[in-house]
Amino acid sequence: MSSEVRFTDFKSDAQPTWCPGCGDFGTMNGMMKALANSGNHPDDTFIVAGIGCSGKIGTYMHSYALHGVHGRALPLGIGVKAANPDLEVMVAGGDGDGYSIGAGHFVHAVRRNLDMTYVVMDNRIYGLTKGQFSPTSREDFETATSPEGPQQSPVNPLALALASGATFIGQTFSSDAQRHTEVVKQAIEHDGFGFVNVYSPCVTFNDVDTYDYFRESLVDLGEEEGYDRTDDEAAIERIMDAEKEHQGVIYQDPDSVSYGDEHGLENSMADIPEGAPEGATDLVREFY
């Protein structure tokens, strides 16, 4: 693999318009490093971005990229990967894009298990529309559309992933650059759907789930002796623990077989002959 690729090769010359201090800077830097560290090249990488602050990422990175409509980033990524398994496909979106409008696709993308990476920049707030509660906002989180809090349980995305048959569940914190990069790299290298929920604080509209909060509350499973990431019961225990927030690779199925391998997807579908493909006439004969 090309060792000459540096993470800055994945950086475009566009100036981010994220608020100063936004967690998305760290999230994106880690993604670029993880892509470079795992030997990828911008010309062979496809970034799909959803809608929201997170969706701007395709502009700030340099690769092939598509910024879609709200909530449909995962189906786009699936189409790209199925059509050309040689591409490194990374889908990035926010908690609104992935767990609200796109929640249905999340369940099915997880269970299809294509060999791609899904990074969710979870800030527990709708930032781009200037501060409404998100599916991961706390029950009492006050916003313009929830003056007394949403008064409904937040989505537990890790539990949703596990229940959907996830083969890789990671969680990171944008400001812990080293661990974030490591986990995203492992998600890239995982043979299947590498899902990483990234705590990516919004400094403008969320004064509850702050850098300080995550710094103080996160327990790193990488530092916990004896934690077995392939043990799904241990994963369930951590994921359902309402008292603690965890970072690291929480679950990985060592026997994961990706969708592409399961379905024999090997080659790019982009190359086609100049006329009907060989054997097409047999299709006509079938109708005798």
């Binding site: 092939y64 598509l66 879609g68 409509v69 189906p75 699936i78 189409g79 790209v80 059509a83 579908m269």
Partner: peptide, 11 residues
């Protein structure tokens, strides 16, 4: 959207 993704990939 899957069909669109595949088309972006050149299929």
């Amino acid at each position: 959207n899957m069909a669109l993704g595949a088309a972006r990939a050149g299929a």
